[in-house]
Design a binder for these strands. Structure first.
Length: 303
DNA sequence: AGTGGCGTGGGCGCCTCATA
DNA sequence: TATGAGGCGCCCACGCCACT
């Protein structure tokens, strides 16, 4: 093991080595594999809507039309979120999820859709892909964890999946999971993980010889509602302490990491965040705040 | 006009529970 | 024991609004 340095050392490395403009771990530029299923579903929704409108204009019996409303309610679900109609459902302060038992709501929204929107048969592939692209952020959930595990493996850490292997391996990493639940981790590692939100699991447990580090990874490209809470969480973790010297790592990458670790002005909020991080690092010498470069250096020094 | 607070949507993975 | 549906929590981005 190289000599592990002071936590401010890795913080400085992080500050001096910004995140890349494009990080492949978070890029989804391929066409969606299920694109055709989205197109098919979108077409079917349109066809049913067209049928309903036609039947209504011919003053068909409600009982007949109801069959198509039922069909509509059944087809809305997986692969539907690119349809103009389900987007319109959002515009009407509703979500497509809970439609099954709300036929009256579906009818009312359909009525409004006919009145306020254009209904035609077009389903251009590139528009469907565009909706998927704009929602691509939702695929990023596990990317951070995977990226860190990739870095760890490159340094010779092994990913393990059960406690036996965890205890027996010298250098390994494990994801929080059912076996590595908060409860089990607290018991087996004799840690408190004393966050305000008692059931909040972290992301990774890293073991390097006798040293154990609990890691929370986040990826943020912008500030905002949920994000500010995420930063608070990371800062909170930085302030945790365990009596047996187990460390915490708050990992943040993405564009917001560059802003946060940068020097440019911005407002009170970011000044406060910077101040708190500095203060927590000073008060908790076992804990680390790192971006990608800082993490890579820290891991390499652990080996 | 810029900043920060905050509510929100849909994807996804994990867990639980019912059922076969 | 295997399976899958539903619930839930976590994920990030977006947009509205108040304040300055």
């Amino acid at each position: 093991m190289k000599k592990i340095q002071n936590n401010l050392y890795y913080f400085e490395i992080s500050k001096n080595n910004q995140e890349k403009l494009l990080d492949d771990f978070y890029v989804f530029d391929n066409k969606y594999p299920d694109l055709n299923k989205y197109i098919k579903n979108t077409k079917e929704i349109k066809n049913i809507l067209i049928t309903i409108r036609t039947l209504q204009s011919k003053k068909e019996k409600p009982v007949v039309i109801d069959k198509y409303f039922l069909e509509l309610s059944q087809i809305i679900g997986k692969y539907s979120n690119c349809s103009e109609f389900t987007c319109f459902i959002n515009a009407c302060d509703n979500t497509m999820n809970k439609f099954k038992n709300e036929m009256n709501l579906l009818k009312k929204i359909t009525e409004r859709y006919f009145a306020k929107r254009v209904l035609n048969e077009m389903v251009p592939e590139e528009w469907v892909q565009a909706i998927l692209d704009t929602n691509s952020s939702r695929k990023k959930g596990k990317c951070g964890e995977n990226k860190l595990i990739y870095i760890l493996k490159k340094q010779g850490f092994k990913e393990v999946y059960d406690w036996n292997n965890f205890f027996n391996a010298d250098y390994c990493v494990v994801k929080f999971s059912k076996k590595f639940s908060l409860k089990n981790v607290r018991e087996n590692l004799d840690v408190k993980i004393n966050t305000k939100k008692q059931n909040k699991t972290l992301d990774l447990i890293i073991k390097a010889k006798g040293k154990i580090l609990l890691c929370e990874a986040k990826h943020l490209n912008t500030a905002g509602g949920g994000q500010d809470k995420q930063i608070s969480e990371l800062i909170e973790i930085l302030g945790l302490a365990e009596k047996n010297g187990i460390s915490y790592i708050s990992f943040l990458d993405g564009k917001y990491s560059n802003v946060l670790l940068g020097v440019n002005g911005h407002g009170d909020k970011i000044t406060t965040q910077r101040k708190e991080i500095k203060q927590y690092l000073n008060n908790n010498p076992d804990n680390y705040w790192v971006n990608t470069a800082g993490f890579e250096n820290l891991i390499s020094d652990l080996k």
